[in-house]
Design a binder for these strands. Structure first.
Lengths: 121, 121
DNA sequence: CAGCATCCACTCGGATACTG
DNA sequence: CAGTATCCGAGTGGATGCTG
């Protein structure tokens, strides 16, 4: 077997999944839902800066991938709760680890950038 | 301290870093460089499907962030080697863990999608 | 070989308005 | 409240051609 790992194939099926999970709003939704479940608007306020459209789109992709559980209660006014599935919890844990690492290294990166920019001016 | 974590701020400084690391080509470059160093074109062939422009852009961002080390040898024809810095190695390890997790869960996700789509037709 | 500059098609994502 | 539909501007990313 000399084929390249699937991650290097253009049509690699894991790429869309990866993008859902690491997308701008996907990351924030997963990390938020790791703490507790949220209603739609509640999650929207919590994240901040996300449009209805993008949050709905993000949650649908994650739900379809089996990472997020959507529970719509048949009441008026509508009430929909979002939570993580066991699979989603695993994903969110990885993502949170990565975001935490990035946040902890922000100073190092800023230092590196300053140095990089200095060697160009 | 009741302020929201910085990751929820629109201008959160970690977001661009995170995006460099999890970007389409950033991921593949980091994972590849975890094994060994590469020359530019060599890395380009290894990844496959990436344009010169995007690979150069990706590597520059990662170099500026202090994750990738670029070593240009003053020879004709030019030879430039790319490798990971210690910081980059940490990042790449996290990223690889996430990609591996995603790849291992592709079957589960596909199953979930089928079920999701079935409940809509 | 290792890029940089330019052009351009396309997609993403935000704002707005509307529905059950 | 929890979405869906439509429009549209900005940015992404690919193709091409050129340079040291």
């Amino acid at each position: 077997m000399v084929l390249a790992p699937s991650v290097y194939r253009v049509d690699c099926p894991s790429r869309p999944i990866f993008e859902h999970v690491t997308s701008r709003w996907g990351v924030l939704a997963l990390v938020a839902l790791l703490d507790r479940s949220y209603r739609f608007s509640e999650l929207r306020r919590h994240i901040g800066g996300v449009s209805e459209k993008m949050l709905a789109q993000t949650l649908q992709a994650l739900e379809r991938d089996g990472l997020v559980h959507r529970e719509a209660q048949p009441v008026i006014p509508p009430r929909v709760d979002y939570s993580l599935t066991p699979l989603g919890r695993e994903a969110a844990t990885h993502v949170r680890a990565l975001t935490r690492w990035v946040e902890s290294k922000v100073p190092d990166v800023l230092t590196a950038r300053t140095e990089y920019d200095a060697n160009r001016a």
